[in-house]
Design a protein around this nucleic acid. Structure first.
Lengths: 262, 262
DNA sequence: CGATCGTTTGAGTTTGATCAAATGTGGTGG
DNA sequence: CCACCACATTTGATCAAACTCAAACGATCG
């Protein structure tokens, strides 16, 4: 981890993505922010920190010094049981908060790791307090964004609890693809997927051997391929059907049409 | 479902439970509320509705008219896949919000059912807006409470993803016992548990047959017994050990000592 | 007194785990 | 450039956890 100087004030709007700032873009999916609120967000997220792939952004037991807002990169939230079993709880994309729990707890009860080189903005608790005192509408927007995180976590419960391995993996791919598209990280039919098969197993509650075989089956059915940290979805519509996937729980404002042969 | 008249203003404090109002009690676990904020809460939750066991409090697809705050009873959140598979996502106890998602969405993307006769307060969106405009500190407390809900959901992911059936069931019992104790619903070593084995299976991602056998094993090991909607925990310490349970994720203010022979 | 719903039991099957080894693959240093 | 190392992926064989199907048993209720 490496601290950087002050970030240059970014333009609020951007022709391509709607908003250049990841948090503003994310909140704008479900909330309307004033010019003043946008400025306050940019102001609050000037201090940034970078992490290399493999670094921990926050570790279980850490005293919480501020909220990390992921600006660039790819991170994951995970919990480890006393006997070593690991469960990955979420993937964090630009615009996502790593540890909003600062409100709730003094120490992290789980960890966050970076899967790619990442950059985060660190917002101090005092800053959050000030923002939420001053801007009730912004506070509701932030609250909403954590409700959205919970909706995703709930879908993971459904996924792991009810779906078979094949459906389960397909579902994860669909979710990631939709979320990455919303933050402009896809390239045609491909998106970054910087996970080993072991990590994929710890995400889905499967052994890595079974992950490998399930992946082969998805490949054999010409739905996806996964190589060198790049996930390619050949037929999104068919993959969504196989996964019993419906994107509504993601609450992305502008659903783009699924491509595919069906 | 049956609408009732205006509830009599309850005393804010109660000698036994600390706070008579379930929401004030819950928020006080992690936040400090002013006298004025407490009054605003009581004011906002006057309109109540009752539900009989088995009723749906909110159904998937419902247009959201207000937030339901559970005041009395026992409810559950669930989602059903297109092919009928059901996953239970949470249990709701007095003080819990049923559908805070009102902020995020216009229609429910999952359902809530009552497991026992229940009473909820209905807070209109306009009322929420007013409260959050007026009381930033209260807003943060409510936000915190939804972060807590998410922490529980995350632990469910760990539970279903990593723990074996026996541990998994033990873990659920531990969680429910701690949460019910925090709202004053336990009686000695027993607490209400108004679930069929089928529902228990849909909670844990197990078939009802396997639930039955796992339950027998827990009984055989003299850890719990479950009869007539009453769960009795004979040895909480041993149950927690079997479940790899640690209560910190529940963020209950005053952890009471576990009883048991160890 | 059926009827309905939940629990329990048995038998057989399937999914996915475990163990072990072989085969890539990318990076490092000589 | 090659040898080597550390990892990740792939494959095979075996095993166990959990599922399915089917039937019996028990409560509860109009």
């Amino acid at each position: 981890m490496k601290h950087e100087g002050t970030q240059r004030a970014a333009a609020i709007r951007d022709a391509q993505t709607g908003f250049a700032h990841p948090l503003i873009r994310k909140l704008s999916n479900h909330s309307v922010l004033s010019e003043e609120e946008c400025r306050a967000i940019i102001e609050a997220t000037r201090r940034t920190t970078t992490f290399a792939a493999g670094d921990d952004i926050a570790k279980r037991g850490d005293r919480i010094r501020g909220v990390n807002l992921l600006l660039e990169g790819f991170a994951y939230r995970y919990k480890i049981l006393e006997d070593g079993r690991r469960q990955i709880l979420a993937y964090l994309l630009p615009g996502d908060f790593c540890d909003l729990d600062v409100f709730l707890i003094k120490w992290m009860d789980h960890s966050i790791g970076a899967l790619k080189d990442s950059k985060s903005a660190v917002i101090s608790p005092a800053h959050i307090l000030k923002l939420t005192d001053q801007f009730p509408n912004l506070t509701r927007a932030l609250w909403r964004s954590s409700l959205l995180d919970e909706a995703i976590t709930r879908e993971w419960v459904v996924n792991i609890g009810q779906r078979a391995a094949y459906e389960r993996m397909a579902h994860l791919f669909c979710e990631l693809f939709h979320r990455l598209r919303a933050v402009g990280e896809i390239d045609g039919k491909s998106c970054p997927f910087p996970l080993t098969q072991i990590a994929l197993g710890d995400t889905l509650g499967l052994s890595s051997v079974h992950v490998n075989r399930t992946l082969q089956e998805l490949r054999r059915n010409n739905l996806v391929s996964l190589r060198n940290g790049l996930l390619t979805i050949n037929n999104l519509a068919a993959l969504e059907a196989a996964a019993l996937f419906s994107p509504d729980y993601l609450h992305l404002r502008m659903p783009e049409p699924s491509f595919g042969t069906i």
